[in-house]
Amino acid sequence: MISEDEVARVAFLARLSISPDETKRLAAQLSTVLQHFENVAKVPTEGVEPLVTPTDIEVFWRADQVETWANAEVAVASAPEAVGNLFKVPPVVG
């Protein structure tokens, strides 16, 4: 079970604003989902290393060299707001 307060707390951790209606709905939906996920807890895993990537990753090296890429104008072209080749953000008080 996950409470509405907990959903609101986690949503803030994830930097997501959600409406009171969404909070209520998510608490109900996620409770059902988490209840189903309890089947994972029943599997004995003592001493088992977590698997975080499915294949053995071969480490390969490359020279640590600076590469030039596009230009600043291209990089800021999709910015919500830009001045010249700088990202522009609104003033925030806090």
Binding site: V40, A41, V43, T45, V48, E49, P50, L51, P54
Partner: peptide, 8 residues
């Protein structure tokens, strides 16, 4: 826990 079961 999920990652451990993933290995299994």
């Amino acid at each position: 826990k999920a990652c451990q079961v993933r290995r299994l």
